[in-house]
Simulated assay, not measured.
Amino acid sequence: MKGPDFSKRIKKLRSLLQDNNLDSALITDRHDIRYYTGCTITGPGFLIIGKQKPKLFLSSIDNHIRTKQADVLFFKDLKEIKSHLKQYKKTGFDEYNMKAYTFIKLKNKNLVPAGKIIKFPRMVKDEWEMKQIKKSIKITAKIFETLEVNGKKEKEIAREIEILSLKLNTEKAFPPIVATGKNTGFIHHIPTNAVVLKGLTIIDMGVKFNGYCSDITRMFYSKITQRGEKLIEDVKEIQETIIDEIREGVTFSEIEKFYEKLMKRKGYKVYHSFGHGVGLEVHEGPSKTDILRKGMVVTVEPGVYKKGIGCRIEDMIKIEKMKAKPLSKFIPL
């Protein structure tokens, strides 16, 4: 399989810019820069896409970067970016990413908020992207399969996940969440010296393969109470019901409301969204008012959190025309 079609991605963005009466885009998010050029930068970067060949302004820290998708230029001062932007009447910029300092320094009245437009093409994954995501999920499955948790501290398990990620020639997508016992009641618990004994343990982890993330949560348990069993069964049922409801054409917010309805019916309080998009970032579009489209990849992660106990199950799915296609359901709970 060939690699990413960057020219096609840039062409799509140009079409979106034209539809929104913009003649260029100023891209500063390093994930967006990677999406449109294939370049992984470590310092500040400014990708300008107009009608001509894109320009990629980088600091000298990234002097190794070369790409066929853009002319690479090394800048020392933001004045150089400002000067180049003068040729454009209206430039869309990423208001979610650009630093206030940079915005003030550019002092360009023609800058127009366009973060949604810049990121829009990233939401639907192409065949190559899907291959990377599926590989990322398989590696995550391998780590889950290898993990031994009983008698270990949360910190030890989290460290073991990171080591296994490196051994499998990948890296963590985010710091692993390991919560056992009463700590399962905290959504983004930071691993402690608490030891996994009996009861419930939440492990939420993901890796990056060729830049593409996985994000999966599984429950580990032994000698659980009836209360714990009911939590697991309820969360499994809610997740399966949500997945059955997801399909192309439904809005993200409609699924959100459906999730809230299911939780309320079971007598549970909602503490977070039903899920989120996944790709080059572990949390990305679609979200809120976005319409779900074929080719999007999202998580479904219902969670119940009570005093002293909690449960979350998270899987990744691909949006299809009439239904959602589970991508990580093969990983045992």
Rank of each mutant, 00 (worst) to 15 (best):
K109A: 12
S24N: 03
D77N: 15
R122Q: 14
T146Q: 10
P175M: 06
H283R: 11
V300D: 04
R34A: 12
V300F: 10
A141D: 15
I104A: 12
E154G: 10
L197N: 15
L164P: 01
E156H: 12
C311N: 01
V124K: 14
F220W: 15
T146A: 06
F6D: 01
I246K: 10
G267V: 10
R122I: 04
I255A: 09
I117A: 03
D315W: 05
I203E: 00
L73K: 12
P44R: 13
C311V: 05
I202T: 13
F46R: 01
K109R: 11
T37M: 06
G277E: 01
I309L: 09
V195L: 11
M219I: 15
E154T: 07
I202G: 01
P286N: 11
H31I: 04
H31W: 11
P175I: 13
K230H: 14
D204A: 13
K116C: 00
M205Q: 12
G211H: 10
R9N: 10
I291D: 04
Y259T: 07
G277N: 03
T140C: 13
P4C: 08
L106R: 02
K105I: 03
A100L: 06
K152Y: 15
E95R: 02
F274P: 03
G45I: 09
V297F: 08
K223T: 02
S273Q: 14
I177F: 11
L22A: 09
P175K: 05
A173M: 07
I246D: 04
K105Q: 13
L168T: 00
Q226E: 12
R218S: 04
E237H: 07
Q69T: 15
K294R: 15
D234H: 12
G185M: 06
M263E: 08
E233A: 15
H64P: 01
K153H: 07
K182L: 04
I255G: 03
G267H: 08
V72M: 08
K223N: 15
V297E: 07
G199K: 06
A173Q: 03
G285M: 12
L22N: 05
N97C: 13
Y35V: 00
I243G: 00
G279P: 08
T37V: 10
S273D: 14
F57E: 00
I313E: 02
L58N: 08
I203N: 01
F57I: 04
F186Y: 10
G199F: 11
R14H: 05
M123E: 12
